[in-house]
Design a protein around this nucleic acid. Structure first.
Length: 677
RNA sequence: GCCGGUGUAGCUCAGCUGGUUAGAGCAGGGGAAUCAUAAUCCCAAGGUCGUUGGUUCAAGUCCGACCGCCGGCACCA
């Protein structure tokens, strides 16, 4: 197992084209695959597309296409995008492929055979037009569908449920025994907390649409997205000649979908009979990207369309930036300025220049061949260089092992900086003036070439083409990982004296200040800020991973247990009179800190004890100062309740969507404290 | 409100199990060099290590409280 490495990205939901967020995940996965391959591991890198669900079905219809034609097109856009970023997945799986569907059904049957799938009733608010259930909080004004504005109905539907609750203890044991299972640590803690709070069974089928994998033996139902989608990691290898790659060593996911990968996914596998040693090794959650400091809304995404960036700046340059600038697992910011700065200082000035200043000596004094090393010229400088070489090569390796590409790449550039320092200290241009010192010159140049050689390996996971181009100039073959052969530089002295070099042009474009201004203008960036006309709409958090089906947000996917909820029951007058509604007047109002909606109101309802403190979630529609003096209707006999640390002694009546709701008031002047009935 | 994280030079961040003058990169300042895409190298400067108590011979590093920011959960009756 140690010699194999299987890395996955989420499969991307085809309701959107590839953007920088998906590119980030894919590039990172590709870099890990390349790095492990260089170390001699047999590697497998899987990505693909998630193609089922109501939303796809509907999008296809809107475009007058069959769902299959629609997903073929978008999936193709993903498949063709990755090579443009020099990503080389070893497989690309689509959930609409027979190999996948067959496998999901098998997995389902195994879970069912183990008694973990049962039929139950799923009920909730249902929009006939959408053919979809909505959680209560997503409903628009007056219990209507958020898209159609038509009244929703309380519906019951028979569906299948997965006995997630059964796996709570086993999951907790897994997190306990294998702390590396969810990373970074912060995410792990969140997962553990979530599971400890109790797991509800999961609704895993739908009859409201057909575009999905049919439930075995009951094809009125299709599987709900997460059961279908998560299984891709398994179906891509299990029944193939690559079965030995199971389980995945690294599953890269965005932080928004950790829960599905760290809780539901292992539970499905456990249910299907997979032992702990056959569960994924590590689910690693990376952070989100902002664009020039702003959340990645759709309009912002367009300005950083990854293929365009790659074509403009170079795929390798973009990859390097994403991996070097941002700590995997932390949120990061993409900005054109920072990208340019990285290219300029790390790549062109440090690495490119080291090559560029070395080659003329090789050409002029050594007939464009590698000069001979000569230990007799070794001094303090050389000792230092060797020491740093060994340290940095080792640190870089460790960093990759710890899922820290940014540190690994920092080490690689640090080695190039050491090379430049050594170059200056030994001043080959001075040595070159004395013909009798030619052997010493050769020894110095050899050492520099050796540093460059090591750099091409250390940087290859991020910069495959550039490193191969650099190697070509050094007269070295392009790197070709071979299983069982560790090519990570461990030994000093890989350059062969006498070998021919092939000096070429500069590897990296030098971006001057003038160029920079022009580039920023091309991309519509001013003062480091992308122009956004609709910055407020961009506020809606966009997720870098398209995997999360909007219809499968945590609230929806963690469906209510199949027990009855409150429907719209008929009540008698006596039930109504239990509710004491009173007219009140707002005496003062203030926002509750850290809450968007909650206002703390002091409301006079004619009680001798003075005004009541009541909290109301109306802060989006009303400013506190506008409420003072207003009369409104409250429920006076509601049990007091604490919200966000403040006690509420009643409830304010209001209706409408939260941004524009209206409080319930009266139209004649009636004294406060009067009962409303 | 509960839980977790975090707050270190202008910016982005390192600082492991507490121990000499708190580090790096970038930006800015000075200098050297001139092999190289005006790229490189060196030097100096720059920090009350969020605030405040405490433990200790010794704390950025441990403990308490508070403040700020971020995240998860809950809540929005």
């Amino acid at each position: 197992m140690k010699d194999r490495f299987y890395v996955t990205t989420p499969i991307y939901y085809v309701n959107d084209v590839p953007h920088l967020g998906t590119a980030y995940t894919t590039v990172a996965a590709d870099a890990f695959a390349r790095q492990r391959a260089l170390r001699g591991m047999a590697t497998r890198f899987l990505t693909g597309t998630d193609e089922h669900g109501l939303k796809i079905d509907r999008s296809a219809k809107e475009r007058g296409q069959s769902p299959q034609a629609f997903v073929d097109e978008i999936s193709g856009a993903f498949r063709s995008a990755w090579p443009k970023l020099r990503c080389q997945p070893s497989d690309f799986i689509r959930t609409t492929e027979p190999r996948h569907k067959k496998f999901v059904q098998e997995l389902w049957s195994k879970c069912a055979a183990n008694g973990d799938i049962y039929q139950g009733e799923h009920e909730g608010w249902y929009c006939v037009s959408c053919e979809q259930f909505y959680p209560e909080k997503d409903l628009a004004e007056g219990k209507t569908c958020p898209t159609h504005k038509k009244p929703v109905e309380w519906m019951k539907e028979t569906g299948y449920f997965f006995r997630l609750s059964k796996y709570q203890d086993r999951l907790l044991a897994l997190y306990e025994q294998r702390p590396e299972f969810v990373q970074p640590e912060g995410r792990r803690n969140e997962v553990v907390t979530f599971v400890k709070e109790g797991l509800k069974d999961l609704s895993i089928s739908r009859t409201t649409f057909q575009w999905g994998v049919p439930v075995p033996g009951d094809d009125k139902h299709v599987m709900y997205v997460w059961f279908d989608a998560l299984t891709n990691y398994l179906s891509a290898v299990k029944d193939s000649e690559h079965a030995a790659f199971w389980p995945p060593n690294l599953q890269l996911v965005g932080k928004d979908i950790v829960r599905f990968h760290a809780i539901y996914w292992p539970a499905f596998l456990m249910s299907a009979g997979y032992g702990d040693d056959l569960l994924p090794r590590t689910v690693f959650a990376h952070g989100f990207l902002t664009i020039n400091g702003q959340k990645m809304g759709k309009s912002l995404r367009n300005t950083v369309e990854p293929v365009r960036l790659a074509e403009y700046f170079g795929a390798d340059e973009l990859r390097y930036f994403l991996l070097r600038e941002i700590a995997l697992g932390q949120d990061g910011d993409f900005s054109h300025k920072k990208l340019i700065s990285r290219i300029r200082s790390d790549l062109a000035a440090t690495l490119g220049n080291l090559l560029n200043r070395t080659l003329p000596f090789v050409v002029k004094h050594f007939d464009t061949t590698v000069p001979s090393p000569d230990a007799s010229f070794d001094g303090e400088r050389e000792a230092h260089l060797r020491k740093r070489f060994a340290e940095l090569v080792d640190e870089a390796k460790t960093a990759w092992d710890h899922f820290e590409p940014h540190r690994a790449l920092e080490c690689a550039i640090a080695l190039a900086i050491e090379g430049n320092g050594y170059f200056d200290a030994r001043a080959p241009w001075v040595l070159a003036k004395s013909p009798e010192r030619k052997a010493e010159l050769g020894a110095v140049i050899y050492n520099v070439l050796e540093v460059l050689r090591a750099c091409t390996v250390l940087l290859w996971p991020a910069l495959p083409d550039k490193c191969d181009a650099l190697r070509a100039q050094l007269g070295l073959a392009a790197l070709l990982p071979i299983a069982g052969v560790d090519k990570w530089p461990s030994e000093w002295g890989g350059m062969a004296p006498g070998a021919k070099l092939n000096p070429g042009g500069p590897l990296f474009r030098n971006i001057t200040k003038d160029d920079e201004a022009k580039i920023l203008a091309d991309f519509g960036v001013t003062d480091g800020e992308t122009k956004v006309t609709d910055a407020t709409t961009a506020k809606a958090a966009e997720k870098p991973n398209a995997h999360a089906n909007p219809a499968a947000t945590p609230a929806a996917a963690a469906a209510p247990a199949p027990v009855s909820a409150d429907g719209v029951a008929i009540i008698g007058i006596d039930d109504f009179t239990k509710v004491e509604l009173k007219l009140g007047e707002v005496k003062s109002a203030e926002r509750v800190p850290k809450s968007d909606k909650l206002l703390k109101l002091q409301i006079d309802i004619g009680e001798a004890a003075g005004p009541r403190q009541i909290l109301a979630g109306i802060g989006l529609a009303y400013k506190p100062e506008d409420l003072v003096g207003k009369k409104l209707v409250i429920i006076a006999n509601l049990a007091p309740r604490k919200m966000m640390g403040h006690e509420s002694q009643g409830m304010v009546l209001a209706c409408g969507p939260s941004e524009s709701l209206s409080i319930v008031t009266i139209e004649k002047d009636i004294p406060v404290g009067t009962r409303v009935k």
